[in-house]
Design a protein around this nucleic acid. Structure first.
Lengths: 129, 129
DNA sequence: CGCTTATATAAGTCAAGGCGTATGCTTTGT
DNA sequence: ACAAAGCATACGCCTTGACTTATATAAGCG
């Protein structure tokens, strides 16, 4: 199943949105989805399986619970594919400003609101899209 | 049909890739797709229709030919949805460098010294159903 | 005009996948 | 050990959508 097919289902997109805020157990995901879409527990479980099988999520067992978390790789692939179209809306000169704004916004989210020296640092490599 | 469903089909993705390099007639698109996927002209025409109907492409009649071109809006929406996951791979401190690099690269491509008005910022959309 | 080229639409077929009900497999608590 | 909780799998139904063949529409050309 191709990455875009996985994202084609609204329930799976919603699950990923939920997981974007941190690990959730299968049951917690099911509760929300069940409430929002009115589908059964097995249905949700099957969606989780698709996400797992296609690398969009990873699972960790904790007792009888299964904790799901987002796995970025396939999303990054989709993002890279979109890259070739970005010039259609990130036009010419103001691209820099837009990119800077986005960079700032995202560091704010990732680092937390405290502008002090970060507690942990990551070497990190240059990533090209 | 949701944007992600439209992109779920490999033929449609390929068509968009072709159109990314500029306008193409239905016939030109069909020739390539037919060669690469071995499907019929009506099949390609139907895919073009889906792209049209969902705002991924616009058409212009020139005599008997239909010239298709990419329409960015839905792709941008998809890109924005992905935005919430970008922090998973554009990590912390080097995010700025990465963004700058991308901005530079894209200005090199798109270039043209046109100082525009400010860019639109932060959609804040919400998705459901 | 008729013929041809370019493209779209119609109708029918077929396979994929999403869902429900039923059930299986672990782990935990008593 | 047993029962219940938490999740996953099995299987069958039904819908959706991607094809194919056949045909319609429309413009260019002799």
């Amino acid at each position: 199943m191709h990455a875009f097919d996985v994202l084609g289902d609204p329930v799976r997109r919603r699950i990923l949105e939920l997981l974007a805020d941190g690990e959730l157990s299968s049951g917690e995901v099911t509760a929300v989805i069940r409430d929002e879409y009115g589908i059964s527990q097995p249905a949700v479980s099957q969606h989780l399986r698709v996400l797992r099988d296609n690398g969009f999520a990873r699972v960790r067992a904790e007792g009888t619970r299964r904790l799901y978390a987002v796995e970025a790789a396939p999303l990054r692939e989709v993002d890279m594919w979109l890259g070739r179209f970005r010039r259609f809306w990130e036009q010419r000169l103001d691209a820099l400003a837009t990119e800077l704004a986005r960079g700032r916004r995202e560091r704010r989210i990732a680092d937390g609101p405290v502008p002090g020296p970060g507690p942990e640092e990551d070497p990190g490599h240059e990533e090209n899209r």
